[in-house]
Nucleic acid binder design. Sequence first.
RNA 1: GCCGGGAUGGCGAAAUUGGCAGACGCAGCGGACUUAAAAUCCGCAGGUCCGAAAGGACUGUGGGGGUUCGAUUCCCCCUCCCGGCACCA
Length: 872
Amino acid sequence: MPQQDKLQEATITANTNQHSESDRPHDNRYNPQRVESKWFERWQSDPQLYAAEEANSSKKKYYVLEMLPYPSGVLHMGHVRNYAIGDALARYMWMNGYNVLHPMGWDSFGLPAENAAIQNNTPPRQWTLGNITKMKAQMKRLGFAYDWSREITTCLPDYYRWNQWFFLKFYEKGLAYRKKSKVNWCPQCATVLANEQVVDGCCWRHEDTLVEQRELEQWFLRITKYADELLRDLEKLSGWPEKVRIMQRNWIGRSEGTLVDFKLDYAEDRSGFGPAGGTISVFTTRVDTIFGATSVQLAPQHPIVADLAASNADLRAKVDQLIAEQRKAKEAGDIGEIEKHGVPTGRYAINPFNGEKVPVWVANYILMDYGTGAIMSVPAHDERDYEFAKKYKLEIRLVVLPISNDPEETVTEPPLPFVAHEGMLINSGPYSGVECADAIKKMSAHAEEKGFGKASITYRLKDWGISRQRYWGTPIPMLYCEKDGIVPVPEKDLPVILPENVDITLVGGSPLGRVSEFVNGTCPKCGGPARRETDTMDTFIDSSWYFYRYTDAHNDRAPFDSKTAQYWFPIDQYIGGVEHAILHLIYSRFWTKFMRDLGLITNDEPAERLFTQGMVIKDGAKMSKSLGNVVSPDEMVARYGADAARLYSLFAAPPDRDLDWQDSGIEGIQRFLGRIYRFLVRNAAPYASVETLPASSLSPAERQIQRKLHQTIKRVSDDFQGRWHFNTCISAIMELVNALYAYEESATSESQTRSSASAALLAEVQRNLVLLLAPFAPYLAHELWEMLGEKGSLLKAAWPKYDAALAKEEELEIPVQINGKLRGRITVLADAPESVVIDRALADEKLQAAIAGKQIVKKIFVPGKLVNIVVK
RNA sequence: GCCGGGAUGGCGAAAUUGGCAGACGCAGCGGACUUAAAAUCCGCAGGUCCGAAAGGACUGUGGGGGUUCGAUUCCCCCUCCCGGCACCA
């Protein structure tokens, strides 16, 4: 990747310790800066350290991926947490003998680079690449084990050319198309604004300039073609959080219903149809209630409304008012709370089921971008229609009655609106007496037979508009020729390079449109002049397939090699913020399905398992500059070390929950690391035997340490396999260290010389302690590994195994309850049978006193847990 | 409004299958070391009450009810907080 070489290699100013005496190898004070800078240097000198093996490796593969960051210039604590989780997992998998792929890259196109360019007069490319250099250095300093040889940078041509290649494939397959669509337009800037740049309906840069809605031709990707599969395959994603699957399901929003055509009635005025024609197609999930339809409601932007208003200035003004109300509500984010308004058009439409004429209205609560932008209004059986009909005194006609469980009972009129689906039709011509569900089927079939409608499925999901009138993005590889129309750039001419030195500070239209050498192209068909597409692609394109590129990052003939991707995919574990639950993760799934249909891959889904970590908050709020509660990772690393920063972000809360950052908490973690360090400085000894010491050769105190060790290995291993509560893993390791301190104190007070067994045990415990620590605090673990005299790589040292027999307690203190209340404790052998334990409990003096004079009703024994004596 | 998630000491949290609530850590208090402090090491610690103490009683996981020998955990109702979606026809 030649472009990568232009990036300055990370230069690091790891704080080297000023006190030179601390260069003594076994200074008994833990100095994170000394330890970390030493290992940092070593790790930098080995670029192959974290490299994944080739796809033909005989080892089992494991692909662990954290969402790639936008290179804003600084890492924040949310990143640290995300990457600490992934890094711990990657290291754990390495130690378990897997061929691990753990890559990192940069989602480096996007608006902030343009804003920075305008503010600081720095070209977007320079600004972005500079930020990448800074953040890469931060990541390296934090000790994350990435295979940097696979690094991808989406804003560089060797990556984005494949965006263009994919776009051509979408176009080829008819899945990329152009259509007119509304955009936010600031007349002052003469450019398009993203939704988040519209503040209170005005431009973010021109506070008193109202943003207009303009219709522009835009490129769309036909994600709706996959809507059904995207929905269906959610079932397969058992390794994804239920929350994310539900969010995606709602986002796709599949809705079964019926399309019904209402013809405009022109009996009185045959002056005719406008361009939109004379048919209003409505979508309804309740076609069974159509005999109760007493009006048709159109969205204010409906084309038929435009026709009707064309010759009616009064109507036009009222409709414009409705549009304004709707837009205002949408911007305020409460379209659901909008006060319903409507205006009658004065025209009528004909209900094809009964030939009835119903008035046609325009209403501000009808959305043009859902369904057909038109509904039939059934006030008796819909909340919204009811509210509207009450307000405008429209007819309310009951056509469904509840079904009584008791056939004898006379059915009374239900309170309105009656929206339940369980009911029976009345006043519905031939369908009276039919139950709702049945009626929907019959009436849909009837509509289709008669040619005025059909059963239909509507999705909330819309096609993906990918055009951005922006500079810093992937150029869309299309040409417009006077003669040949829209012509794709031939594959061999890719990439269409984003020009440099474009003045984006000027307002007025798309920046690329002002670069004549870019705009003026040649039609590949006729050789004549052609205008290049000047829009760029949405940056979500970049992140929709980047994880495939990691498997074969330097391929210059294809986005990646299919066989290689097949080896690595699906991603075994994907980790990122829940804020990407919908857009990024739905686009990624869509892209995967499209690539599968192209024959590039064989997997249906990109990621087997998904983990969404919680946010990092401070003082009860998300960290933000405006609140002044931002904690800087650099500062934490400088003060406490990378290990402490990482360990704390894992310790303070389970990874899936929000983490409340407390500066005092990280100090405690640093103390803990110091405790381990000092213990090993005092006790480090080479581990000679591979065999675990037999329990019989140990004293009770030693046996207790051995037991604690095996319990700790079990707890940490189980969590990696299961629920990922690293906070409890770390507390388990703390408990082990505390036990070692207690043991050390008791041992030194008892005798000055240690038995050979206890020396061997201590060596075994320390070695395993370092192994357990390795995924969480790699710097210190490596230092201690060396201190123990170990020669091999800690990264690939075998993860410790526990012995269930050694982990088992021999004696247990069991609580004894009387009527469920704790009344005493007895100590019994772990495997003591029920009779023995109950007898012991009953024999206990204190318990006898509590039972005295009462009758024992029941004795409950839960092995290893408790005894409960129920008395009267 | 709908869909998720959550509420446990002064604070972050733990309790993995209905079985000793508060592990581990922070802050706090006491002690050791020190001329002193920092650092370190050891100990105490949910609340209320009784007791000189050892110890004991009661109470306690947002609120109310239920199931159970036993509920932080299961069921019903309610309150508040966080996130997502929202006139979706």
